[in-house]
Simulated assay, not measured.
Amino acid sequence: MIDTPADETEYLSVKPKHDSAAERLAITTEPAERARLLLVMADAYYWWAERHTEVYGADLIEEDGVDKAVSLGMTFGLLRALASMETARAAGVPRERAANSTVEARGGRHLDALVTAHGLELRADLYEELHTVLVPVIGSQAASPLWQMSAAYYRLSEG
């Protein structure tokens, strides 16, 4: 629970860096830069996941049936997997698979396809499909960055 306003201020201290990375990610198609931005965002989600319960207490996301801290941790794992995919894409090599990962188990083939996918609309479609297969296992809130990335690629494809 929030004991002092300083607790919440510290918790939110990574938000400007996260938001800046998310804004840049929405307009960037270069894989190495996308990987870097995804890692910045993942770091923020890790920070929030580690501190959420301490700052806000138990916080159930009813639609997903999980605690907010767990959902934030799942988003962290998702963003790390996406950063790994973009790193492989930038290097032109197969991506490293995450061990014991829900994202890998359900979305691995989509991540593999994203490594080699060319064309903004195709990438948008793959992000949308990845969102669809992951929502049942990580929840809609944890998977929401995929929906945002799909929408960004669709916007970019329209010129």
Results as ranks from 00 to 15, higher is better:
S157G: 10
R36T: 14
H131P: 05
R123W: 06
E158G: 11
H52W: 06
D125A: 13
S157C: 10
G108V: 10
K15N: 07
A143N: 01
L156P: 00
Y153E: 04
V115T: 15
L82H: 00
T87N: 10
E50I: 05
Y127L: 02
G119W: 08
E86T: 09
E63W: 12
A90V: 05
I27C: 13
G119N: 09
D112E: 15
I61D: 07
V66E: 13
Y153M: 15
R123M: 09
A124E: 01
S101Q: 00
L12Q: 10
T29H: 10
R34D: 01
D59M: 07
D112R: 13
P94L: 06
V14W: 06
F76S: 01
R36Y: 14
K15T: 09
A99R: 14
R109G: 08
P145T: 04
K68H: 12
L72F: 03
G57Q: 08
L156S: 01
R80L: 12
F76D: 05
M85E: 02
A90T: 04
A83Y: 04
A88Y: 03
E54F: 03
Y46I: 01
A58Q: 15
T102A: 11
G57I: 13
R80G: 04
V103S: 01
Y127C: 05
A42H: 01
S84H: 06
A81H: 03
A91E: 15
E23P: 00
E129V: 08
D19P: 07
M74W: 12
L114Q: 10
V14Q: 08
S84E: 13
H131L: 09
E86N: 07
P136R: 05
A91W: 05
L72A: 02
T53P: 02
K68Y: 14
H118P: 09
A21Q: 00
L78D: 04
T53C: 11
E54C: 00
S13W: 10
R123I: 07
V137A: 08
A151P: 04
L60V: 15
P16A: 05
T28Y: 03
V103M: 01
D67T: 09
T132E: 02
V133G: 02
L37R: 03
V133M: 03
E30M: 06
T75I: 02
V70I: 13
G77D: 15
T132A: 02
R80I: 13
A88H: 13
A90W: 03
A32K: 08
M74D: 09
H52K: 04
